[in-house]
Amino acid sequence: MARYILRRILLALPALFGLVLLTFVLTRVIPADPAATLAGDAATPAQLAEIRARYGLDRPLWEQAVTHMRQVLSGDLGSSIFSGRPVMEEIVFRLPATLELTFVALLLATGLGVPLGLLAALNHNGPIDHLARLISVGGLAIASFWLAIMLQLIFAMDLDVLPLRGRIDVALGAPPTVTGFFLVDSLLAGRLDLLVDTLRHLALPAVTLCLPGLASIARFTRSGVLETLQKDFVLYAQAAGYGRVRLAAIYVLRNAVTVTVAQIGLLFGALISGAVAVEAIFDWPGLGTYAVQAILSADYKALLAVTLVVGVVYAVVNVLVDVAQALIDPRVAEQVK
C-alpha cells in the first residue's frame, strides 16, 4: 500500500513540472505589456525600457523561463508586479475562502445527490427516474453565473432572507484568523453568531456551485445502485425474499462513500471552474475572483501562481482520492500494480 501511495505521488510530479512550464509559456506570450500599465500616464519610452529591465521583461524568453523555474522550485512564486506584494501571501488569504465554499458545495452535492440517485435507481425507468435524471442533467446544464444572478434576485432582493454578497456581515467582521476557514474560526472563537452569519452567506453561492456536482453524484449513485442490483448475489438475496429497498440501502451505505470519493477528484475541477463565475457575482474573496482580476490586469505572475496553485491543489486532491479509494477498496491498488 505504501508503495502504491508513493508511486501515485511520484506520478503526479512530472505533470506538475509540465504545468509550471506550460503556464509560463502561456503567460509570457501575452500581448499586453505589463510595463506600460506600470509606468502609467505619459510614460516615456525610456521609462518603459527601464521598467522592463528592472523586472527582467527584456531578457530572452528561455532565460525568463529558467529563472521562473528556479524560483518556483525554491517555493518562491514571486511578487505581483502590480501590488508589489508576494503572490503567495494573497493566495494564502484567498485559498481558504475558495476551499470553504467548494467544500460546503461538495457536502451539499453529496447530501442531495446520493438520495436522488438512489431514488432514481429504485424507480428505474419509472417516472421518478426520468424526473430525477431531468433534474440531475439539468443541474449540469444551468449556466452558473445565470443561476447565481437569479438566486440573488429572488432570495436576497425580493424575499430579502439571505445576504447578497461576501463571506460575512461587514459590521460583524471576520473571526480572528486561525485557519482562514470562517466556519472553523468562528467555532474556535466560540462565536455562534459568526458561525450562523457565515452559513447564511454561504447558502446562495454554495447552492449555485453544488448543482453540477449534485448531478454527477446522483448519476453515479444511480448507475452504481443499478449495477449492484443486477449482481448475482443480489438476485439470490432477492429470490430469498430480501426487499429491494433494503438491499439498496445496504448497498448505498457501503458504496455511497466510494462513489462520492471517486467523484470528488473529477468534480473538484468543475467546482473550481464554477467558482470563478460564482465568486465574481457573490463577491466571494477567493481564488476565482483573484484569477479574473489577474487576467484583466495582465498580472502574469499572479495568473501563473493561481494556475499553479489550483493545479497543485487539484493534483493533491486527486492523489488523496486515489489513496482513499485504495484504502477503501484494496483491489484498486492491486490493479495498478
Binding site: 506550460l22 475541477g269 468543475a270 473550481i272 471552474s273 470563478v276
Partner: peptide
C-alpha cells in the same frame, strides 16, 4: 498536464 488545471482557468 492539461487535465491538471481546470478547463475554465
Amino acid at each position: 498536464v492539461f487535465l491538471a488545471v481546470p478547463q475554465l482557468i
